[in-house]
Amino acid sequence: MGLIMWIIIGLIAGAVAYRVLGGRGGFLGSLVVGLIGALVGGKLAEILRLNISGGFIDQLVLSTVGAILLLFLWRKIRG
């Protein structure tokens, strides 16, 4: 996937994660959470040996799950 698609997926995933867990995240915050969430979700799928085809929807779901997990853990660590 190209850089533009990674940015779009990151923004959507970050925004959804903030919406699910509450709180506020601006443009840059959503982008960072979404992109890091994509890495977390990808690693999680690799560990669980999930068969992901790599399509837009698959990547968006994986990134969103990773972003939600990332925000949840971040908030638990920070208190």
Rank of each mutant, 00 (worst) to 15 (best):
G23L: 12
G22N: 04
L21W: 01
V20N: 03
G37S: 10
A45D: 05
S63L: 08
G23S: 13
R75G: 05
G25K: 06
E46K: 15
G29E: 15
E46Y: 12
G14W: 09
R75C: 05
S30D: 13
G10C: 07
G22S: 11
A67Q: 02
L69R: 02
R78M: 10
L44K: 03
L35N: 01
A17F: 08
I52E: 04
R78K: 13
L60P: 00
A15I: 11
I8L: 14
R78V: 08
L69A: 15
A15R: 12
S53F: 05
G25D: 13
A17M: 08
F72S: 13
L3K: 14
A67S: 12
L28M: 14
K43R: 12
F27Y: 13
M5W: 10
V20L: 09
I36F: 14
G29I: 11
L70C: 07
R19E: 14
G42N: 05
G2M: 08
L11V: 07
R49D: 12
G10I: 06
G34I: 07
I8D: 00
L70Y: 12
L48K: 04
A15E: 11
Q59I: 00
A45G: 02
G41V: 05
G55A: 07
V32P: 06
V33M: 10
G79C: 07
G66E: 05
D58T: 07
I12L: 13
L70W: 05
V20T: 12
K43A: 14
L69G: 11
V65A: 10
V16N: 01
L50H: 05
V40N: 04
D58L: 02
G55W: 10
G2D: 15
G79T: 03
R78Y: 09
E46L: 04
G37M: 12
G42Q: 09
S53L: 07
A13Y: 06
G2N: 15
R49E: 08
R49C: 02
G41D: 04
A13M: 06
G23V: 15
F56K: 00
I36K: 02
I36C: 13
G10V: 10
G37I: 12
K43I: 14
G25M: 14
G26R: 07
I7C: 11
I7V: 15
L70F: 12
N51I: 00
A17K: 03
R49L: 02
I68Y: 03
R24Y: 15
I57A: 13
N51L: 03
L44N: 01
G66F: 09
I68K: 03
L35H: 03
Q59H: 02
G79H: 05
L48V: 01
L60N: 05
F27C: 09
F27H: 06
L70T: 06
V33S: 07
L31K: 02
G37F: 09
N51Q: 10
G26D: 12
W74S: 10
G26A: 11
V32F: 12
L50M: 04
W74I: 14
